[in-house]
């Protein structure tokens, strides 16, 4: 046990978590930076759960932001109309997101990848437009106000709440990915027909992966927007979802940790690059940030398909890179 804990990956993990737990000590004088980092945790949850859904289980869904929105809107509307506490609202929002995930999973059972993407894009857009048009109920584009998690919550407390959610969901997802569940969903990603011929109940695991990831983003969304204080239909824009996907891809789609770290740094740098001070001048980067981000994405897809971070993480935390050299070795032995 002790020996296992002394492995580099565990040491790296402890250092990483330690840094995150300790950093409010540095950040607490700058509420803005604190909020940026807290928001980045939210995006890390989105990206890593999307990596589980799309990278590990092969379900390329665009409905992730919409499900986070469902969590937030449910909590907000219940709080406004029924006077529920934020905690009750968060629970309800999480459950509803899970139920919607269940329905999406069932409806998409027989859909091939491209159709699943189209279906979930359509779903997100319809939901967003519905939220805009039913403004008497949803406040439309003005956005729906949400109470703070509790009265007098501080930025530091909000930081720890989000960090706790991130670490908790990462632990859960890691456990899932390394258990039989992970084995089955990966076999399903590779070949559904072969997986079921090997005894895997593909239908069950496909629905389960949608439900689990929907619960996670529903919970994260409901909690995060209670901290922000307002949620608008814009959060569900396909552009937002695309950003999450890009973050996961840059970090490494098949790696929960890669996606989380990729999202964290993308989010922080996108925020920090709003304005750049050079020699006393302030340059407004505005939309140019996204152009740079897009370039980075293109670079990743072209030159580093495992993501930019995953190879590093793999070396640091995992067994080490496996090589594709066997093919060459055996090609000589065998003519096909």
């Amino acid at each position: 046990m002790i020996k296992r804990l002394l492995q580099p990956r565990w040491i790296a993990m402890v250092v990483l978590v330690g840094l995150l737990v300790a950093s409010p000590a540095y950040l607490k004088d700058s509420p803005y930076q604190m909020a940026v980092v807290t928001g980045a945790f939210f995006y890390a949850i989105l990206a890593s759960s999307w990596a589980l859904l799309a990278g590990i289980a092969g379900q390329f869904s665009f409905a992730h932001m919409a499900l986070a929105g469902i969590g937030a809107y449910t909590a907000g509307i219940l709080g406004r109309d029924l006077g529920t506490t934020p905690l009750q609202g968060i629970i309800a929002g999480t459950v509803l997101a899970g139920l919607v995930g269940l329905v999406i999973g069932i409806l998409c059972l027989r859909l091939r990848a491209a159709y699943l993407a189209l279906f979930t894009i359509a779903f997100s857009e319809i939901l967003r437009i519905w939220l805009l048009t039913e403004f008497q109920f949803t406040e439309g584009s003005n956005g729906l106000m949400l109470d703070k998690l509790w009265e007098g919550i501080t930025g530091v407390q909000e930081y720890y709440v989000m960090l706790g959610l991130l670490l908790g969901s990462m632990a859960l997802m890691y456990w899932l990915a390394s258990s039989r569940f992970g084995l089955f969903v990966r076999s399903m990603r590779e070949d559904e027909e072969a997986a079921s011929a090997m005894g895997v109940n593909v239908v069950r695991y496909k629905v389960l992966i949608f439900v689990i990831t929907s619960l996670i983003v529903g919970l994260a969304g409901a909690t995060f927007y209670h901290q922000v204080g307002i949620v608008t239909p814009n959060t569900m824009e396909i552009l937002q979802m695309s950003l999450v996907i890009a973050m996961a891809v840059i970090g490494g789609m098949e790696s929960l940790l890669g996606a989380a770290i990729g999202a964290f740094f993308s989010r922080v740098s996108l925020e920090m690059l709003r304005e750049v001070g050079v020699f006393g001048f302030t340059i407004e980067l505005g939309a140019w940030r996204y152009a740079a981000f897009g370039l980075l994405l293109i670079f990743t897809l072209r030159f580093a398909q495992n993501g930019l971070l995953y190879p590093i993480i793999d070396r640091l935390f995992m067994r080490g890179a496996r090589k594709d050299t066997v093919a060459k070795r055996t090609l000589a032995e065998e003519e096909t």
Binding site: F184, R186, D191, A194, G199
Partner: peptide
Amino acid sequence: RAFRRMTVLENMLVPAMAL
């Protein structure tokens, strides 16, 4: 229809775990 992006050992474990 091997599970191509899984190791050979993992390929072997899928049916065992399912059973």
